[in-house]
Amino acid sequence: MVDTRVTLSGIELANPVIPASGAFGFGYEFAELYDINILGSISFKGTTKEPRFGNPTPRIAEASAGLLNSVGLQNPGVNKVISEELPKLKKCFNKPVLANVSGFSVEDYAYTCEKLDTEDCIGWFEINISCPNVHGGGLAFGTDPKNAAAVTRAVKKVTNKPVYIKLSPNVTDITEIAKACEAAGADGLSLINTLLGMRIDLKTKKPVLTNKTGGFSGPAVKPVALRMVYDVYEAVKIPIIGMGGISTAEDVIEMMLAGARATEVGAANLIEPFACKNIIENLPAVMEKYNIKSLNEIIGGAHNG
């Protein structure tokens, strides 16, 4: 018998497989397909203070071994998330979830987190300071250590739940931002958000996305994500949730060896609705194949010493 349990800031997960924010809505579409209680947790759709429609369509494009999205944080706003979405989520999922929160000012983040803080189903906050699709929004906080620290401090003030900061890969040195968040009191980090990218249509000779640019995700970004998780693991002591191109149980193990304590699965859910279920079911056999008895023991295993 292998042990797939991991612990994130004192809360035990049955396995390290968590659908990533934006790729799983509030869970209930997937609950029609399988019992989502098998998941380690869920990071729900990025929530903001006000309702948002997001960017104009087309806001999805094919890319090599992945996709671009410029959805732009569509969500019904924190009040409706609390009154309509979370009750539906709780009906199909009975474990603690990650509340993914985005904002346009430090006050926005604090406001939204304070509102959500009283929700029992929320185990952790995952603060998105890295959305590449909102101009003047999240990414502005995620590319500057001082701003990242300011958001971290503001959120820590309004909640006692563990606060994970979701980092952008669109920076020169991700470890600088990681260290700034740790120093400001972050309980953990999650990385990476999508890579800023573009596609151009040869027929129209113009960008495919109306927003021109979008976030690149999918299997193609996995090596970049692994490298960044590896580097951040060396730079900080707080736990890391690793993500970027994870589609298989092997990918989960690889990400954990780089230093992730848990992992998130994003794009794969959109292509293969049963992706997380398949990963969880395959995990024990893959662990046995590579002689891994407990996932806890392999976290950061790729590092020396």
Binding site: G22, A23, F24, G25, E29, F30, K45, F53, G54, T57, P58, R59, I60, A61, L67, N69, V71, Q74, N269, L270, I271, P273
Partner: peptide, 26 residues
């Protein structure tokens, strides 16, 4: 509309209607 998932998860194909935003796929 250009779609990501086709079953309502990614919000890639949303449009505005008189009764709020709707996902073309779902």
């Amino acid at each position: 509309e250009r779609m990501g998932c086709g079953f309502g998860a990614c919000m890639g194909c949303s449009c505005k209607t008189k009764y709020g935003s709707k996902r073309i796929c779902k």
